[in-house]
Amino acid sequence: MKKEILRIGEEALRELQQLDKSEALQELKVKVLGKKGTLTALLRQMGSLSPEERPVMGQVVNEMRSRLEKAWEERSAELEAIALEKRLAAERIDISLPGSRVARGHYHPLTQVVEEIEDIFLGMGFQIAEGPEIESDYYNFEALNLPKDHPAREMQDSFYITEEILLRTQTSPVQIRTMEKLRPHLPVKVIAPGTVYRNDDDATHSPMFHQVEGLMVDQGIRMSDLKGILLNFSRQMFGESREIRLRPSFFPFTEPSAEVDVSCMLCGGAGCRLCKGTGWIEILGSGMVHPKVLEMGGYNPKEVTGFAFGMGVERIAMLKFGIEDMRLLFDNDLRFLQQF
């Protein structure tokens, strides 16, 4: 009987090594170890053995059984590994194929820049003010200390609708409108982004463009505060290591007035093509609010002071993104817009 057990067992072990399908492996297992299996049949015959032989034979059967089971496990693991290997090989893809299409839209670069400027000033406690694009001569000029026939009006060629109504040439009228609305509340602390218009159309001028105006009025506002706020802005906008410098300038609605340069973002101030070798790039105009403008806005210039500034959004966008021709911004070619 022992012989028979060993024969069946050894044969099954040999056969098992040759099988290469897990289903066949399972079949063989049932054939040998299943309820009607050959080894199980032998086990059933154990009853006919003597009590002395029974444990000896039992041990032989069990040993063979566990040998078989172990071999089965090993072989089936082997087969699984082979099958997995096969599947992986079969499922190989060309990873160099392009990815699936994602329909993503793009913000206009000017929107991105305006929102970035807004966010920087929101973070410094400024609110966002707005005003009409079609403006009265009074708000656009007169209230800003630019009476009729003031030579400085020539700096801005205007589009007129009537003699008294025009397309605003600057966002500065929002200064007056904001002060009129808020007075006598302090502090006044707003920025005013918006579309402005000048009768000019060439490579470096667009008849429609965008500005962001800033205004802060309070007791004891100093020119050094203007410098601090603008340094903060420049660093957030153009990088932590930027410096700014102020140069005397002229605007009818500020006194003293200053042009603000930021150290060149391309060369860091060493001098390059972008900054024309000077290391500095002009980014905005600013100054202390002219007493007459404070008065026009309903504040007493003996009690409060303020600063104001204004920047061209197109210019900032061109500097930030390295755009060489301003006309691209209004050309709306999708190949251009989809870069942003």
Binding site: L122, Q127, K189, K227
Partner: peptide, 19 residues
């Protein structure tokens, strides 16, 4: 103009927010 220092406005903090 370079002599003018860099300061921040004194006074209460204000809330920056969009309408």
């Amino acid at each position: 103009y370079d002599l003018i220092p860099t300061t921040l406005p004194q006074g209460d903090t204000t809330q920056g927010r969009r309408t």
